[in-house]
Design a binder for these strands. Structure first.
Length: 335
DNA sequence: AAACCATGCAACCGCCAGTAG
DNA sequence: CCTACTGGCGGTTGCATGGTT
């Protein structure tokens, strides 16, 4: 057997939380904030491990949680974000020498998986960060229990987001580029820069069918210099640009795959960066400095109101880019 | 009415990264 | 540098509930 859980070691309670335990935890965190999770159970008089307390708080007791069923828009957003964040790959049209890089990358990834070290998992937390009031656990459950089925009913493979027929055929026609993300609507964009993607009801619209063909360059964003301040446009990198320029964008994309997600919501990269993923931590830390009223504590009006303007990348950068960089670098002996 | 099955959801487990000492 | 600890995350499990046979 593997190692025992922390609860076992400390002979702590497990299983469902009683209303009394909830009350204790809620009262304690409301009064003192959570601080160090491992010390919370003792301070709050709970026979639970810190991890359990944290989970209970994040998934159930947090006051900003939105309970109830998911709206159609939320479901659509989850599906679209899953297509981008769920598959931690990027489908990009690139020059051949970069394909070589890809080859090594996928070779390594293949070996990685054989050895059971796969790290390419779905980014539920990042999806949840884009759905205020929803937890990653909630979204994960929704996906596993409901959305996967809905997609299958629509003839879409929930893993690749491609049509099931194409997946069943093994994509063996040779004409396919190394398509790893699937046919997300984002791939439909062609120059000139298209209107930003709308979070429409595409996926459950009976008339919607995923795009079957695509020839496209890397997704990019750009801000027009003239005119209104935030004129961000989304489009595709022209593949005939200089190699250096392309590689720069390629690197940018690898470093910031979430920019793609930002595109889905018609957000400028800057506004994207303003979104704090670790929201509950933010509330608590911000509260200590900014809260003034005793009862309101630090509960935010909305996440975005609470957040200070940040012009630096996320504190919690997506690992995908890091993984790809690391593996790619490893493939070329840079490590 | 009872047994069985499917579903949704809360919670746990184990791994990993960051960090303090 | 090494180690231990902690928080965070994704995958999985197990239970409660409702529906079906």
């Amino acid at each position: 057997m593997g190692r025992q859980s922390c609860c076992y070691k400390q002979k702590l309670r497990k299983g469902l939380w009683s209303p009394e335990e909830d009350e204790k935890l809620l009262r304690h965190i409301t009064k003192y904030g959570h601080g160090c999770w491992s010390s919370i159970p003792k301070q709050a008089g709970l026979q639970r491990c810190g991890k359990s307390c944290r989970l209970r708080w994040i998934n159930y007791l947090r006051p900003d949680l939105k309970r109830g069923t998911f709206s159609q828009e939320e479901e659509n957003l989850i599906i679209e974000l899953h297509a981008v964040l769920g598959n931690r790959y990027i489908h990009i049209h690139i020059h051949s020498h970069i394909y070589i890089c890809f080859f090594f990358f996928f070779l390594l990834e293949f070996l990685w998986r054989i050895l059971g070290f796969s790290r390419f998992s779905i980014r539920w937390s990042q999806i949840a960060a884009r759905l205020p009031g929803r937890t990653d656990n909630e979204i994960k459950n929704l996906w596993n229990s409901c959305l996967k089925k809905k997609l299958k009913q629509k003839g879409i493979d929930p893993v690749t987001h491609k049509p099931l027929s194409e997946v069943e055929n093994g994509e063996g026609n040779g004409s396919n580029k190394p398509s790893l993300v699937g046919h997300h609507p984002i791939h439909q964009y062609t120059s000139p820069p298209p209107p930003p993607p709308k979070l429409s009801s595409n996926w459950f619209n009976p008339e919607f069918s995923p795009p079957m063909t695509a020839s496209y360059g890397p997704l990019y964003y750009g801000t027009t210099t003239g005119g209104s301040a935030n004129n961000t446009t989304w489009g595709l990198v022209q593949t005939q640009t200089e190699e250096e320029e392309e590689e720069t964008k390629w690197t940018e994309l690898l470093n910031s795959p979430l920019l793609m997600a930002a595109a889905l919501q018609n957000q400028t990269p800057q506004s994207y960066y303003n979104i704090e993923i670790k929201s509950e931590t933010c509330y608590l830390t911000n509260s200590s400095s900014s809260s003034s009223s005793s009862n309101d504590m630090w509960w935010p009006q909305t996440q975005q109101q609470q957040l200070p303007l940040q012009h630096e990348p996320l504190q919690n950068p997506d690992i995908c880019g890091k993984d790809m960089q690391t593996l790619t670098a490893a493939a070329f002996g840079h490590i």
